[in-house]
Design a protein around this nucleic acid. Structure first.
Lengths: 368, 368
DNA sequence: CTGAAAGCGCTTACAG
DNA sequence: CTGAAAGCGCTTACAG
């Protein structure tokens, strides 16, 4: 029995596949088949056509694993993002992917949520799949991961936030400075009691930076009384924004301006104001973040921060591409987010007398 | 010189890598290293620990290409979608990916736009990367691609639309029947002049089915006069919706109800109505599509079609998973989209007398 | 339980 | 210009 199977095993030559099958059918060597596809100019025209012909007839598709093994390259890059189910990241990834696909790479997306402190296992999966480079949203807070990156000398760019000088290269903007500008703008309009509706802060450097800027700017302006910061999840952001606004009205009725770290929060908050018969911006001012497509259609149009989502995706991709081709590390690219002044912020009713000229202030902020 | 390099080549044994390096360092065979990772129970505990220890120390990560080549599997599946920059597809893909990642697969996304007639080259890239299965949005209209799928016996599920019985398995709902229901609902409320704002129709079976249903239902109700159908692109959908609405008012002032094949169109259209000082739904009724998160926050809340985006992504993934594990073809799963009656449709002012009871009609439609 | 060896499908120096 | 052969890093029947 054993003998039989063994014989059988030996004798049933299973049909040749891949380059072998083509070579046989075209009566050339496998080397020629390979060359026909990879350096066609080095192959005699007659042979080339013969090979191409048989390959087409046989429906030959080169085996990517064999190729990758041999070439020690697989043209795969990983994208580590909080979630795809969020207009902002979807747009960023879309641009990222487009750029990379255009250069013959494919991208594998890994959604890891908003907390960057424990993403090692997820990211390791990417490495185990052979990702040659990585884009990750936000600062990496996971020591283990940082080590892995060092060890494997993996080209990495962080995105969304700009790096502290010492850290990994990043393509993004300064969330701290941007928020500072926003708060100053609101303060100049005479508001003194603000509130912030923030996204998840754990392991999320963008939110942390914004909150810090929020508080620092308050202190800087000599305001003692802390301002409320409400942390909300991003899923169901619209109703989270609404409920947060309700809570602000109930618990902090003296707040006259609400900074939302997402246009979705702002949309929800705005809607809640309508329900509460609060006039925006007369009774309460609202600022959003991201400049999502609906922002200018809101009533009134939402004053918000325009974040260059596509640009971040595209430039991250380009940096990675360059790093991969040249063997040099990716470079940091500093981008800017712009405060878009529209209709949801006005001079504080409570402090109208104290302000000089809101309109000219607006202009200033715009061009700053 | 040649001799020297040759000697050098031979003698500089470059450092062993992978399983070899671990084997050497742990003083076991490479087979044992492999077993330690793939069937740990078959390895003596002492050896296992030794191997695990050295592997960790060496930062060993198995080479995915070698593994894939040997196993003839790479656990990659492809997702062919119009774009990621669209809440609907982003959400669907998010669920798709989540499900697949949970089972050890990775997904590569290929954005091909809305026209499914010439996607062969893009999809071929996926196959050349070794995708073991494919999810594609909508019906595949590309003959060449259909052939490739047959030939390679690739498990494929189409999604969003439900398949014609003969075609590939699909996970989706019937766009024709759903739109029919929508139109009937509007007709029951006494409207006789409708318009549709549709997405791109070329190679897009969903749009085609909806338009067909739109016209068929009209004819069925004995309405001779054709209804306008405006085709718009999906990017900048908000302003496209607004401009379409403006055009409808200008050119077809007798239209009393507008069916939008996307909530974004509807949002834009609604905003335009506000600008035009048209009351919704008193002066004009609007229906959306997809039930995006903002739909119920609109003013008035948008009557729309709830499409099971996450469910489609998840079920597509599950079908592919089953196909891959069992070697059986994926099965068609029929889902349903539900008309959500909210505040943007009312009895036609022009025909109030002719209608019996709009409220009870609403209820009917809801539970249909 | 462990190891030696074959082979997955490619590319590429080397020799001709 | 073409071919024979080595080797990329794995897994797994087979033998012990």
């Amino acid at each position: 029995m054993t003998r039989t199977t063994r014989r059988a095993r030996k004798r049933i030559a299973r049909p040749k596949t891949g380059v072998q099958a083509v070579a046989e059918a075209a009566r050339v060597s496998i080397a020629t088949v390979s060359r026909t596809f990879n350096s066609p100019d080095s192959v005699n025209e007659v042979m080339r056509d013969r090979v191409l012909g048989t390959a087409a007839k046989l429906g030959y598709v080169p085996n990517p694993a064999a190729k990758a093994l041999r070439m020690r390259r697989n043209y795969l890059v990983g994208a580590v993002i909080p979630t795809l189910d969020h207009a902002f990241f979807a747009r960023m990834v879309d641009a990222f992917q487009e750029t990379l696909t255009g250069s013959g790479y494919a991208v594998i997306i890994m959604s890891v949520g908003f907390d960057n402190t424990h993403i090692f296992d997820s990211v390791k999966q990417l490495v185990e799949r052979g990702a040659e480079a990585l884009m990750v949203v936000g600062r990496i807070e996971d020591k283990q991961l940082l080590e892995l990156i060092k060890e494997k000398a993996l080209p990495v760019v962080c995105t969304y936030s700009i790096a502290s000088p010492s850290a990994l290269p990043s393509v993004g903007f300064d969330n701290y400075q941007t928020m500072r500008q926003v708060v100053r703008y609101v303060l100049r309009l005479g508001h003194t009691r603000l509130a912030m509706i923030a996204g998840p802060t754990k392991g999320n450097d963008r939110q942390q930076a914004r909150i810090e800027a929020f508080e620092d700017t308050r202190v800087e302006h000599g305001i003692q009384d802390p301002w409320p910061v409400l942390e909300r999840r991003y899923d169901n952001a619209l109703s989270e924004g609404a409920s947060a606004m309700r809570l602000i009205r109930a618990q902090y009725p003296d707040v006259t301006a609400v900074i939302c770290n997402s246009d979705s929060f702002a949309f929800g908050a705005l809607t809640e104001c309508h329900r509460l018969a609060l006039r925006v911006p007369e009774d309460i001012s609202i600022v959003g973040h991201d400049d999502q497509d609906f922002a200018e259609l809101l009533d009134p149009p939402l004053t918000t921060v325009a974040v260059p989502a596509r640009q971040m995706g595209q430039l991250s991709a380009q940096e990675l591409l360059r790093a991969l081709e040249n063997g040099t590390p990716p470079q940091t690219v500093r981008l800017y987010a712009e405060l878009l002044i529209r209709g949801t912020v006005s001079r504080s009713a409570a402090n109208k007398a104290t302000v000089t000229d809101a309109a000219s202030e607006s202009q200033q902020a715009k061009t700053a």
